[in-house]
């Protein structure tokens, strides 16, 4: 079966985001961008399923600006077979991304779609679930283990309080949690090879999807700043302060 892996280009997770002074958003000019960490895990899982002979082809997809090509090349260098860039300079909300992915899934007929559980920029945690709803297929969110067995997939999910295992009929949608795997680094020869792998460029209109935002951002502001605290000299001083708080 084919596996479809949507990936997103986001601010690098090591960068501390700065809110623009005019409150219109976060300053992304000249900031290092990378593949969303949860998506790296998704790509890795898809490639491992291919290495096990479960998957025949891994297709990476990204919806975003021309520079999202770099993110797709990274996925190709990790081991994806081909890529599709749905190019747009607009900010596309999870619902519209899910609609574009549905159209691609209708065309490609993947057995599995593996997404990250959330993007570290908008922190929405929606796209996978929305895609599952639009396709009318089951969802295995926050996966820490994925096993394909015949015409179903067993997904161990990270839930509040522990782990839960569900069995889903294929085709299915899986979203990755951090513990699913450790993504590989792309080697230099593979980075070179990735340059010649096919990358198709499309537009949202090719899939008949309207990407007009449904949610308007009125303002982006800095979170409330905590008042600077004090350092105490030793354990005795700390004990005294804790007793003042009245918790022991």
């Amino acid at each position: 079966m084919k596996i479809l892996v949507p990936v997103k280009r986001v601010i690098d997770y090591n960068v501390k985001p700065r809110v623009k002074a005019d409150g219109t958003g976060v300053d992304l000019a000249n900031v290092k961008m990378s593949m969303n960490p949860f998506d790296e895990i998704a790509v890795e899982e898809a490639i491992r399923l291919k290495e096990k002979g479960v998957a025949t082809e891994v297709i990476a997809v990204s919806v975003g600006p021309a520079k999202a090509q770099e993110t797709l090349r990274t996925a190709l260098a990790m081991g994806a077979d081909r890529a599709i860039l749905v190019q747009t300079d607009d900010e596309v909300e999870p619902l519209a991304v899910a609609k574009i992915l549905k159209a691609i899934a209708d065309e490609e007929q993947p057995g599995l779609v593996i997404l990250g559980k959330q993007a570290i920029d908008d922190d929405s945690n929606q796209t996978g679930q929305m895609l599952a709803a639009l396709l009318g297929r089951p969802q295995g969110t926050f996966a820490s283990e994925v096993t394909v067995e015949g015409d179903s997939v067993i997904v161990k999910r990270e839930v509040d309080g522990g782990l839960e295992t569900v069995k889903l009929a294929l085709p299915a949608i899986v979203t990755t949690d951090l513990r699913l795997n450790e993504p590989r680094y792309a080697s230099l020869p593979n980075i070179m090879k990735a340059k010649s792998k096919p990358l198709a460029t499309k537009a949202p209109a090719d899939y008949g999807v309207d990407t007009a935002p449904r949610v308007k951002t009125l303002k982006v502001s800095e979170p409330p700043v905590r008042v600077a605290g004090v350092k105490v000299a030793d354990v005795d001083a700390l004990v005294a302060k804790i007793k003042e708080l009245g918790i022991s």
Binding site: V19, D123, L218, K219
Partner: peptide, 29 residues
């Protein structure tokens, strides 16, 4: 569209929510 993880209700359709790992707070409508 869903509004995820709201921190406050500012109006009938206006909410605040954290983005970028809580490094920014967005007011959305």
């Amino acid at each position: 569209m869903q509004i995820s993880d709201i921190l406050s209700v500012e109006g009938e359709k206006t909410f605040t929510r954290p983005i970028y790992a809580g490094n920014a707070i967005a007011t959305v409508e």
